[in-house]
Amino acid sequence: MSLMDALFYWLQMKWVSSAHPDDGAARETLLFFAQILSEDHELVSYEVSSIDAGKVHVTYAKTDGSTRTVWFDREAVEQLNRDMFNDQKE
């Protein structure tokens, strides 16, 4: 799995976990992607650094000391949470 894919999936699960703090499966999945980020991609930190109307920015640091900020489309990040919420309503 690419670094950008792993960051995106981690971000989606972070969004879902924040919206549904009692969802154990969401927490476990969030931890799974965190493990991929640290073990496979050698990240020592990663966090949401800013959110605006259209983008979610994530800043990460690697074991070599390099840092980078990337952004993801906010609508795409929120989509999984919307899909889950809509499924629960039906």
Rank of each mutant, 00 (worst) to 15 (best):
A25I: 15
A19M: 11
A61E: 07
A53P: 01
T63Y: 02
V48C: 00
E28H: 12
L7E: 07
G24D: 12
V56L: 04
K89N: 13
W10G: 11
L7A: 06
A26H: 09
F85Q: 15
D64T: 06
A26R: 01
S66R: 10
S49N: 02
I36H: 01
S17L: 13
N86I: 10
K89I: 14
F8G: 08
R74K: 15
D5V: 04
A26F: 04
F85G: 14
W10T: 09
D23W: 14
D87S: 14
S38R: 15
A6R: 01
D5G: 07
A61K: 09
N81Y: 08
L31G: 03
S38D: 08
R74H: 10
R82M: 01
S66Y: 01
A76D: 13
E47H: 13
V44N: 09
M4A: 15
N81I: 06
S45A: 13
F32L: 12
V70K: 00
E42K: 12
T69F: 02
M84Y: 05
A53D: 14
Y46Q: 12
A6C: 04
H20M: 15
L11N: 04
R74D: 07
L43P: 07
H20T: 13
W71I: 03
T67K: 11
D73H: 00
P21R: 02
Q88C: 07
H57R: 09
Q35Y: 11
A34K: 01
R68S: 12
H20S: 15
A25S: 15
L3P: 04
V77D: 02
L80G: 02
A19S: 12
A19H: 07
Y60D: 09
S18F: 07
L11W: 00
L30P: 03
Q88V: 14
Q12M: 11
T63V: 12
G54L: 11
A6N: 03
I51G: 00
L11P: 06
G54W: 02
S50H: 04
A25T: 13
E28I: 07
E28Y: 10
Y9K: 10
N81S: 15
S45C: 00
M84G: 08
L3T: 05
L7H: 01
E47Q: 13
L37I: 00
V58N: 04
P21K: 04
W15P: 00
E78Q: 13
K55L: 09
M13F: 07
Q12C: 15
E75A: 15
A53Q: 11
N86Y: 10
Q88I: 12
A53L: 03
D22H: 06
N86S: 14
D52H: 02
F32W: 00
K89S: 11
V58M: 01
I51P: 01
L37T: 01
D40E: 09
T67M: 14
L11M: 01
L80D: 06
N86D: 14
T29K: 14
M13D: 03
W15F: 09
F8E: 04
Y60W: 04
L31Y: 00
F8M: 05
E78H: 03
S66W: 09
G24R: 13
R82V: 08
L31V: 07
Q12Y: 03
H57P: 01
K14M: 10
M84D: 00
R74Y: 10
L43G: 07
P21H: 02
N86W: 08
D52Q: 07
L43Y: 05
D64C: 10
T63D: 05
G54R: 12
F33W: 04
A76M: 15
S18Y: 08
G65K: 05
M84R: 11
